[in-house]
Design a protein around this nucleic acid. Sequence first.
RNA 1: CGGGACGUAGCGCAGCCCGGUAGCGCACCUGAAUGGGGUUCAGGGGGUCGCGGGUUCAAAUCCCGCCGUCCCGACCA
Length: 489
Amino acid sequence: MADDKKLTKRADDFSAWYNEVVLKSELADYSPVRGCMVIRPRGYGIWERMQQQLDTMFKDTGHENAYFPLFIPESFLKKEAQHVEGFAPQLAVVTHGGGKKLEEPLVVRPTSETIIYAMYAKWVQSYRDLPILINQWANVVRWEMRTRLFLRTLEFLWQEGHTAHATAAEGEEEARKMLGVYRDFMEGYMAMPVVTGAKTDAEKFAGAVRTYSLEAMMQDNKAVQTGTSHNLGQNFSKAFDLKFQTEEGGTEYAWNTSWGVTTRMVGALVMTHGDDNGLRIPPLLAPIEIVIVPIWRSEEDKGRVRAAAALVKESLSAWERRAPGRLRVHVDNREGIKPGAKYYEWELRGIPLRIEIGPRDLDQNQAIMVRRDTGEKRPVSLDSVGEDAADLLHRIQEAMLIDARERREHNSFRGGITYDRFREVMEADGGFVYAGWCGDGECEAAIREETKASIRVLPDEEFRSADPPEKCLKCGRASTAEALWAKAY
RNA sequence: CGGGACGUAGCGCAGCCCGGUAGCGCACCUGAAUGGGGUUCAGGGGGUCGCGGGUUCAAAUCCCGCCGUCCCGACCA
């Protein structure tokens, strides 16, 4: 009877658990349009917190927001050969407008490089007009064959930064800088550790010179690419005639970068932190950090318990968060629902901290504070509840990152991995495998074919093994790079 | 596009094999009691059984066709 209330996370059926959590916690729902998702207020609330924080970080690094059109003339995409080749199979194309067939079809943007650089070409004359550092928050469409809530939908929300620079070095610096911003956000706010590095040619963005990405490990040991930052070189500026006059008087094409993160991060958050009771949202991203559940027996108790809850809320709300804004506190005064039912509901929704206040507590001038991440309960004095809660939220945030990192490292393999062992790992529980690679795309493709695992990134220095592999995992030739292999979403 | 499963109340499902008044649980509405970890009792509302055709006195059930969804692959953030 109670079976439909349970969430059971099992290694062999992680997807089912994930779908259930997303649907039951009311983050999102399936829409009547196949492959598209409706993000419900609770899910959007998390996305809003992400947006808010990222926006601050973008502005701190000198970027401004703007907005470009949803429609892109089909010919624009064709101007960059690799770009159109990469995106052609995934395009939604508008052929009619105002009841008439259009002379030139309009593509619903799968990404906005082309239309944005066409505009930049109008705006730039001289090196003095550079750099251009613009971001847009938008929705894009990619006609994927198979979809999954938050992780891959036909339409998704994202931010895409697009910059133009006067030198190659500046472009590279920008691409790396934004990768760092993403990393600070994912580790600092999402409490989700990531491995950063460059993509191989096979996996890089269509039209990029180099693609950097951030890879996070989910609880089923699969990787999710949670963000990318591309050094586009002069590929697009040449296609769109984005030129400028240099200080010396010559003409030069600008150097571009683009970088983006999507609502996929919400899915990654669920798959990183969720448990059998539902979501666990890190405090810095929780739309509500604290829920207060007053408990009463009699009408008399009800009055004093509610008054106390209101007072606690007031003192908590005045408390500065470590992130912008103040603590968000909700008092659950609903009648006709037992406290236990409320507990389950708020746990499902992942609210990081719960404070229970009942008559027995009031008699002792205390409340009970319960952590969502560990389930730990302890009494706290009403005199210091604000300070204690703020401090605890901070510790929860840290603990969640540490837990996630330990889990990842526990499922990572480094040093002396043979190909047989590698296949074993991928056939069993999977994980992140750091192994040598000869740099040959054929080896990469063969391994992918045989094991379903792909090179997620060529990791940055700090993630590489202390004792770098000398030979390629597959062919045994000299290794030119260490690669991070994993199955991916 | 290949392989699998499914479509019956808002959600989850049973009924189908063997044709005969459309059911159960949750949710919802009303009332009362209850209230420190998923309350209890009583009453109530809600359905063109995915769509179209066929067989039959009679179809949720049998037959044919279509549509749709989910899961697993190929593609990808």
